[in-house]
């Protein structure tokens, strides 16, 4: 309860994006720094789960914010800043992945210790023997391999929906596709992931 309240207060006292964007457009670089700090964790996740490589993510993220900074004056607020920034990140990541091709090496971040208390992890390991037997590192590797087998477009949708928890409507706006296309891509991607991760999936 207390945690919820603290989060609520944090949201209440936070300067809105629109205000920070206006100040950035007026030539206040500190306002853009606030936007970088606010969005870099989320965008890091988006790009990292699409590339499965920490160094590539770092480079791409620098380019994403650089491009956003250069284009901030042309942002007219027709979409939210969040959607606009995510569109830049996804498009740049997709272009990068197209150039990178299939030959690359994974460079994975560490799994934080909080996973041991995650209800999803507890549930998954309690009902699934293979999952209990493999170590966390192996599970992480298998998950990333399975994701990298997907097409870039399918991986983008899975990253936004399943990992980042975005709603279909938001994904549709970011990718400039219909919600139906989002759902269809998710369906096919999940089917493919089910085959790749068969050993870890509950067959009850």
């Amino acid at each position: 309860m207390l945690k919820t309240w603290v989060l609520f207060m944090a949201e209440e006292t936070e300067i809105p994006d629109e205000e920070l964007v206006k100040r950035s457009q007026a030539g206040e670089p500190e306002a853009f720094d606030d936007l970088v700090l606010r969005y870099s964790p989320r965008l890091y996740g988006l790009v990292y789960h699409m590339t499965s490589n920490h160094e590539d993510t770092d480079d791409l993220l620098q380019e994403v914010f650089s491009k956003a900074f250069r284009s901030i004056r042309s942002f007219r607020g027709q979409s939210s800043f969040y959607t606009w920034l995510h569109s830049i990140a996804v498009n740049m990541a997709l272009n990068f992945l197209k150039k990178r091709g299939k030959r690359f090496s994974m460079s994975l971040d560490d799994v934080d210790s909080g996973i041991q208390n995650d209800p999803d992890f507890i549930e998954a390991t309690s009902t699934n023997d293979p999952l209990r037997e493999v170590g966390l590192t192996e599970l992480q590797k298998r998950l990333n391999e399975a994701l990298q087998k997907l097409s870039n477009d399918h991986r983008a949708v899975v990253t936004m929906f399943d990992i980042q928890g975005m709603p279909h409507s938001e994904i549709a706006k970011i990718l400039k596709i219909s919600e139906g296309t989002v759902r269809s891509r998710l369906f096919y991607a999940h089917r493919q992931l089910q085959n790749s991760l068969r050993a870890f999936i509950s067959h009850r």
Binding site: D120, E123, N144, D162, L193, L197, F200, I201
Partner: peptide
């Protein structure tokens, strides 16, 4: 199960 496994990727930081 697929969704649950994918959510675990959030712990890669």
């Amino acid at each position: 199960s697929v969704a649950r496994l994918l959510r675990l990727k959030r712990h890669e930081q």
